[in-house]
Amino acid sequence: MKAFLSTGWSLITFRAGPDALPYAPRMILPLVVLNLALGFVIQAVAGSGMDKPVVQLSAMALAAEALWLWLLLRRRGWDNRWVQGFSALVLIDTFITALAAPIALLAGAGEALLAVGAVAQIVMTLWSLTVRGAIYQHTLEIERWKGVLLALTPLFAVMVLTILLFPELLPAPPPQV
Rank of each mutant, 00 (worst) to 15 (best):
S6Q: 10
S10R: 13
I12T: 08
F14Q: 04
R15V: 02
A16F: 11
A16S: 15
D19Y: 02
A20L: 10
M27A: 15
L29C: 03
L29S: 01
P30M: 10
V32M: 11
V32W: 05
L36E: 01
Q43V: 10
Q43R: 12
A44P: 05
A44Y: 12
V45I: 13
D51S: 13
K52W: 11
K52E: 12
P53W: 00
V54N: 09
L57A: 11
A59Y: 02
A59P: 06
L62A: 14
A63F: 04
A64N: 08
L67F: 13
R75A: 09
R75P: 00
W82E: 05
S87K: 01
L89M: 09
L89N: 04
L91A: 04
I92Q: 14
I92G: 03
T94P: 00
F95V: 15
I96K: 02
I96C: 03
P102I: 06
A107L: 10
G110C: 14
E111S: 09
L113P: 01
L113R: 04
V116Y: 04
Q121E: 05
Q121N: 11
Q121P: 00
I122S: 02
V123N: 04
W127S: 04
W127P: 02
S128H: 12
L129G: 07
V131K: 06
G133T: 13
I135V: 14
Y136H: 09
Y136D: 03
Q137V: 00
T139W: 06
T139H: 07
T139A: 15
L140D: 08
E141P: 01
I142L: 15
R144M: 13
G147E: 06
V148I: 15
A151G: 08
T153M: 13
L155H: 13
F156A: 15
L161T: 01
I163L: 11
L164S: 06
P167R: 07
P167Y: 08
P174R: 10
P174T: 15
